[in-house]
Deep mutational scan, measured.
Amino acid sequence: MEVRTIKVFTTVDNINLHTQVVDMSMTYGQQFGPTYLDGADVTKIKPHNSHEGKTFYVLPNDDTLRVEAFEYYHTTDPSFLGRYMSALNHTKKWKYPQVNGLTSIKWADNNCYLATALLTLQQIELKFNPPALQDAYYRARAGEAANFCALILAYCNKTVGELGDVRETMSYLFQHANLDSCKRVLNVVCKTCGQQQTTLKGVEAVMYMGTLSYEQFKKGVQIPCTCGKQATKYLVQQESPFVMMSAPPAQYELKHGTFTCASEYTGNYQCGHYKHITSKETLYCIDGALLTKSSEYKGPITDVFYKENSYTTTIK
């Protein structure tokens, strides 16, 4: 009895394709271990004539594949690729409408935090270190965002349907971005203890939790000093293409032309909904596939993004 075979390709990165001759009487799992086709788990399936010449994702289970996976995804987590594939199996079914010149995501599976993050990423200057993220990001900007969303979920250790947080998501993504040249110098002034300067680099240099107003941050924000008295913390120097200011959701007025974009969060910790506000020729609110415009805006804002380049204080 002759062994019926077909020729397929296996890959971990969709760049390096490895030619395989597979036995049609055995499952993919018996031949390769966990195997995925377009995100779908085909591990328990036997090869079919229609699979001839198709590319299958496999887990990096030998040295060659491990090197290829690390170079593309910059992670050695053995569960990463499987999590990416199972997320992709959902995100490829989502709709990605162009809204006001940006790629958004039609609401499904509690994905409003991903839509808000995706919209924000198209408006701030950011370059990702893992080629996987950078490639998928370019495709997302062009309207094909399924891979990018699935990668975000995998890097953030999230599953489809789980509630997510924009600030946490951005923080994970910033860790995989090139923020080497970003720098922030802060000064804390206390009447009792004097003053202390701190220099922050990388992710810490672009994120701040405690106030939404970048102007206020430049002037000074009140913080408790270690001595128990009130101290003032203010920005001395900022070198970065953008800054992200966050605070627990509270009524906040966004003035046209003073910011790049913002995240609105309605609801409580267990259950809520994100919308995205962007400042173009007027203010726009993007909620999944829905767009509304207004000249002014007041609502429960939790993150505001500002364009920056270089700032030095005039406070002496």
Rank of each mutant, 00 (worst) to 15 (best):
V3S: 14
R4F: 10
T5S: 12
T5I: 10
T5G: 11
T5M: 13
K7P: 11
F9T: 10
T10L: 15
T10H: 07
T10Y: 12
T11L: 05
V12T: 06
N16P: 06
H18P: 07
T19H: 13
Q20A: 13
V21S: 13
V21E: 14
V22S: 08
D23R: 12
D23P: 10
D23H: 10
M24R: 12
M24A: 15
M24C: 14
T27L: 09
Y28D: 05
Y28T: 06
Y28W: 12
G29L: 07
Q30F: 08
Q30W: 08
Q31T: 14
Q31A: 14
F32E: 05
F32T: 13
G33T: 04
G33K: 02
P34F: 10
T35K: 04
Y36S: 05
L37I: 11
D38T: 09
D38F: 10
D38Y: 09
A40I: 13
K44T: 13
K46M: 15
H48F: 12
H48E: 14
N49F: 13
S50W: 12
S50Q: 13
H51E: 12
H51C: 05
E52R: 11
E52C: 10
E52F: 11
K54E: 13
T55S: 12
Y57D: 06
V58M: 09
V58N: 06
V58C: 10
P60N: 07
N61E: 12
N61T: 13
D63E: 13
D63V: 08
T64A: 14
L65E: 09
L65A: 10
R66N: 11
R66G: 10
R66P: 06
R66D: 08
V67A: 12
E68H: 07
A69S: 10
F70P: 04
F70E: 11
E71P: 02
E71I: 07
Y72Q: 09
H74S: 07
H74Y: 04
H74A: 06
H74W: 05
T75D: 09
T75R: 07
T75S: 14
T75C: 09
T76G: 14
T76Q: 10
T76F: 12
P78R: 14
S79N: 11
F80S: 03
F80N: 04
L81S: 02
G82S: 15
R83M: 08
M85S: 04
S86N: 13
S86V: 11
A87W: 00
A87H: 05
N89P: 06
H90E: 10
H90F: 14
K92D: 05
K92R: 13
K93D: 11
K93H: 15
K95H: 15
Y96W: 05
P97G: 06
Q98V: 14
V99T: 10
V99P: 07
N100G: 12
G101C: 03
L102G: 06
S104R: 04
W107Q: 01
W107F: 05
W107M: 05
W107N: 04
A108R: 07
A108C: 12
D109M: 05
N111R: 01
N111F: 01
Y113Q: 01
L114P: 06
L114V: 10
A115V: 05
A115S: 11
T116C: 13
T120A: 15
T120E: 03
T120G: 05
L121A: 10
Q123G: 04
Q123K: 06
I124K: 04
I124A: 03
L126H: 03
K127C: 09
F128R: 03
N129D: 09
P131C: 02
P131Q: 03
A132W: 05
A132K: 08
A132N: 06
L133S: 03
Q134S: 11
Q134W: 03
A136K: 02
Y137H: 07
Y138P: 08
Y138T: 14
R139S: 13
A140V: 13
R141A: 09
R141F: 08
A142L: 12
A142W: 10
G143L: 03
E144Q: 11
A145V: 01
N147I: 08
N147P: 12
F148R: 02
F148A: 04
F148L: 13
A150N: 03
A150T: 02
A150Q: 04
L151N: 04
L151A: 03
L151K: 05
L153H: 03
L153M: 08
L153I: 08
L153G: 02
A154M: 03
Y155W: 04
Y155E: 04
C156P: 00
C156K: 02
V160H: 06
V160P: 07
V160G: 04
G161H: 04
L163E: 13
L163Y: 15
G164W: 06
G164R: 05
G164Y: 00
D165R: 00
D165N: 14
V166N: 02
V166I: 06
E168S: 13
E168I: 06
T169H: 04
S171T: 13
Y172F: 09
Y172R: 12
F174T: 04
Q175E: 08
Q175A: 10
H176A: 04
N178Y: 07
N178G: 07
S181F: 09
C182E: 02
C182V: 05
K183P: 01
R184Q: 06
L186C: 12
N187G: 09
V189Y: 10
C190K: 01
C190F: 03
C190M: 01
C190Q: 01
T192P: 04
T192L: 09
C193E: 03
C193K: 07
G194N: 03
G194A: 02
Q196A: 10
T198D: 07
T199K: 08
G202E: 06
G202H: 06
V203K: 12
M207G: 01
M207D: 04
Y208M: 09
Y208T: 12
Y208C: 09
M209P: 03
G210T: 01
G210L: 01
T211I: 08
S213R: 03
S213L: 01
Y214L: 13
Y214K: 01
Y214F: 10
E215S: 09
Q216R: 09
Q216C: 09
Q216E: 12
Q216G: 07
K219M: 12
K219E: 09
G220P: 12
G220E: 04
G220W: 01
Q222N: 11
Q222G: 08
Q222I: 10
Q222V: 10
Q222R: 10
I223F: 13
P224T: 15
C225Y: 00
T226W: 06
K229T: 11
Q230Y: 15
A231V: 03
A231F: 02
K233H: 10
L235Q: 00
L235A: 01
L235W: 00
V236F: 06
V236Q: 06
V236A: 10
Q237S: 14
Q238A: 05
Q238S: 03
Q238M: 00
Q238N: 02
S240N: 01
S240L: 01
P241I: 01
P241D: 09
F242Y: 00
F242W: 08
M245E: 02
M245C: 12
M245D: 03
S246F: 06
S246E: 00
A247Q: 06
P249S: 00
P249F: 00
A250R: 10
Q251Y: 14
Q251I: 14
E253A: 11
L254R: 00
H256L: 14
T258M: 10
T258P: 00
T258K: 10
T258Y: 07
T260P: 02
T260D: 00
T260L: 15
T260G: 00
C261V: 02
A262D: 04
A262Y: 01
A262R: 00
S263I: 12
S263R: 01
S263G: 00
E264K: 00
E264Y: 03
Y265H: 00
Y265D: 03
T266I: 10
G267M: 07
N268P: 15
Y269F: 12
Y269A: 15
Y269D: 15
Q270A: 15
Q270N: 15
C271S: 10
G272C: 00
G272T: 02
H273S: 00
Y274A: 07
Y274S: 01
K275S: 13
K275M: 07
H276W: 08
I277P: 00
I277S: 00
T278E: 03
S279Y: 01
K280L: 13
K280W: 08
E281A: 06
E281T: 07
T282V: 12
T282Y: 11
L283P: 01
Y284A: 12
C285G: 03
C285K: 10
C285A: 13
C285H: 11
I286E: 00
I286K: 00
D287P: 00
A289I: 10
K293R: 14
S295F: 07
E296C: 14
Y297R: 01
Y297N: 03
K298P: 05
G299Q: 01
P300M: 13
I301T: 01
I301C: 00
T302W: 04
D303L: 04
V304C: 05
V304F: 01
V304K: 00
F305V: 15
Y306N: 01
K307C: 13
E308C: 09
N309C: 11
Y311C: 00
T312I: 10
T312V: 12
T313E: 11
T313P: 08
T314L: 15
T314K: 15
T314S: 14
I315N: 15
